[in-house]
Structure formats: C-alpha cells, structure tokens
C-alpha cells in the first residue's frame, strides 16, 4: 500500500476502482457480460437465504428420521426438501449438519478464511469473518459463547467445527421448550442464522 492510499477514504476508493477495472476488463474480453454479476447477486438475494436453513431445522425438529439422515448425509437430506437448487460451485457442496443436544453445543467457525454454507444460511455476518472472532472462538469458545450471552451449563461440552473447502458446517439448534403442537412454518420462525452458527440458541416462543 503506497502512501497515496494511506487514508481510509482512498483505501475504499482504491478497492472500488480495482473491482470496477476488473469487471470492465472481463466484460471487454467477453468473459462475462454486463449483466452477469447482477444476475449472480440477485440469485443470492432471492434464493440463497437463511430461510432454507430455517426450513431444514424445522423439519429436523418434527421428523426424527429426517434429523438422522440430515446428520449422516446432509446434502442428500437437504435435497429431499423443496428448496431452491443450490449453486454447486458456490459453497453448496459438502454441507454438513451437526446437532445440538442436551449437554452438547456446537459452534461453527472458519479459522482460515470464512467458509460458510451459503445455500442454507445466506451470506455470513461480518463478525464471522473478523480475525479476532475466528481466533478467539477457536481458542476459548466457552468464553466467547458466554460473552455472547449463550446460556450453557458448565458441564455442557462445546464442539467447535472449523469449516473448510470440504465441510461447510451448520448447526441444528435444540428445539425450544413450549413448542409442542406448533406447525413447521411456525417452528421455522424460531430458527435464527445465529442459532445455526451456534452463537445463539433458537428463540423461545415466549420471547417471539
């Protein structure tokens, strides 16, 4: 980084200019068209959202057989549901679900970059990509979860899953108490993105 880009404003402008130049060159060379990037982005906005993950978790809560299949072969179980077709090249492959249960809490991080199961959770929150979060969650997950206000007993085992190019983890949180008799759609609304990363529990029907 040269001195001329030492101010935050210039740094932003420098990155923006680089991206504009790359896209323009790729269009000029005929590699992409002027609509390609917008098309991909709109697919993410409309289809690859946490709504998919919420539906998967709600199904797992009401159907124990599905829950078992979800853990043993996640992509196959996900394919059973009527969800938008994932973009195989875009982190949709190698989805892997882990299940919270009494005494076991799962937390997903990516210590190397920020692998994330886009098709089921959408795009990661910015803090997921923060180096401090990544390092601390790996090193002292109990402290981090405590700071995040996740109520875990001292005996609860915390399992940290490090996402990579070949395993993109997401968490099936525990079904909250007091949800007997709720429909799958109602249950899905209790599932948050944070609970599927493991930095929160599913919402209680009382608070929602």
């Amino acid at each position: 980084m040269t001195a001329q880009f030492s101010y935050p404003g210039d740094r932003e402008e420098s990155s923006a200019a680089q991206v504009r130049a790359l896209e323009a060159l790729l269009i000029e060379k005929g590699i992409i068209t002027s609509g390609t990037v917008d098309k991909v982005l709109s697919y993410f906005d409309s289809e690859m959202t946490p709504l998919n993950g919420k539906k998967i978790v709600a199904r797992a809560w009401v159907d124990p057989d599905f829950a078992r299949r979800l853990v043993t072969d996640t992509p196959a179980a996900v394919a059973e549901l009527d969800l938008p077709e994932g973009m195989a090249g875009a982190e949709g492959e190698h989805l892997a679900a882990v299940m919270n249960e009494p005494g076991i809490h799962n937390l997903v991080i990516c210590s190397l970059c920020s692998c994330f199961p886009w098709p089921v959770l959408g795009l990661p929150p910015y803090w997921y990509k923060n180096p401090t979060f990544r390092a601390r969650a790996a090193r002292e997950p109990r402290a981090v979860l405590h700071e995040l206000g996740v109520p875990l007993g001292p005996d609860t085992e915390i399992r940290v899953w490090d996402s990579s190019g070949h395993s993109r983890w997401f968490v099936v949180p525990e079904r909250p108490a007091g949800t007997e008799g709720m429909s799958e759609d109602q249950l899905a609304q209790l599932v948050t993105t944070e609970s599927m990363i493991g930095v929160a529990l599913a919402r209680s029907p009382v608070e929602s």
Binding site: V19, E23, P124, Y126, W127, F133
Partner: peptide
C-alpha cells in the same frame, strides 16, 4: 458483533463477491 449488521458495507464489496462467484 452486531448481529444486525449488513453483509456488505460498500457496493464494491458486493460486486467483488458476485464477480468471484460468477
């Protein structure tokens, strides 16, 4: 960690993301 923060703060970040995926 602000759980409500948007994923992209700047449009260039969004374009760079879309370009890499495309």
């Amino acid at each position: 960690a602000d759980l409500r923060a948007p994923t992209f703060d700047q449009d260039w970040q969004r374009r760079a993301f879309g370009l890499a995926v495309a």
